[in-house]
């Protein structure tokens, strides 16, 4: 059927200006990589998780503020975050959690589940590196609570091919809350 009807709108509709997604095989592989990432974290395999992080990692959870629509480009801080880490500082966090027995913020450990969806993968200027966005819904249950701390976010990752698999080069987690609804981020997102 040939629909020739014109769209009527009170303003000119701009085109969708997004780069072309990558091929379906790469997309699938990267999705599997994100599942591995979530699996390792959800199962408290934190030391093992370090394997999939790049040595030049940048891990950033920017501060968000509620701003007027005209100021939306200022919603996220480009400088200050709830987390601002490199590989070395992430490794220190993991060391504290895994090896001390005194990291009380996660001992007893929270029960965390990371639901990762809406994965988009784009090619970059660098061969073998991809820009990847995904949606995260994280549930965190602790002690005897009968409810969950929830955290939803968009993750903007840079992911690099490494041998048969991949490594995480950078992750920016854009949380949907301007005021975080859990007492700390002693977990990874």
């Amino acid at each position: 059927m040939n629909n020739t009807a014109e769209k009527v709108a009170p303003f000119e509709i701009p085109p969708i200006n997004l780069p072309k997604p990558t091929d379906s095989i790469t997309h699938y592989q990267i999705q599997q990589f994100l599942h591995l990432d979530a699996y390792l974290l959800d199962h408290n395999m934190l030391a093992e998780w370090l394997n999939i992080l790049a040595p030049d990692l940048r891990y950033f959870v920017p501060i968000r503020q509620t701003r007027e629509r005209k100021d939306r480009d200022k919603e996220f801080s480009t400088k200050l975050g709830h987390m601002d880490d490199n590989f070395q500082s992430i490794a220190m966090r993991v060391h504290r959690l895994v090896n001390t027995g005194t990291a009380w913020s996660e001992d007893p450990a929270s029960r965390v589940r990371r639901f990762v969806t809406n994965v988009s993968v784009w090619e970059t200027d660098v061969l073998g590196e991809y820009d990847v966005t995904s949606y995260l819904l994280l549930t965190r249950n602790r002690f005897y609570q009968d409810d969950y701390h929830l955290l939803s976010a968009e993750r903007i990752d840079r992911i690099r091919r490494k041998g048969e698999s991949f490594e995480l080069v950078s992750r920016e987690v854009r949380m949907d809350q301007s005021v975080l609804g859990m007492p700390n981020l002693a977990i990874f997102l």
Binding site: H82, M83, D84, M92, W104, S105, L180, N184, L185, A186
Partner: peptide, 18 residues
């Protein structure tokens, strides 16, 4: 940020205690 506040290695233990 790695030491204090939300994810700070020191202060994340405090906020879980209160």
């Amino acid at each position: 940020v790695q030491t204090g506040g939300t994810s700070g290695l020191i202060e994340q233990d405090d906020s879980d205690t209160w």
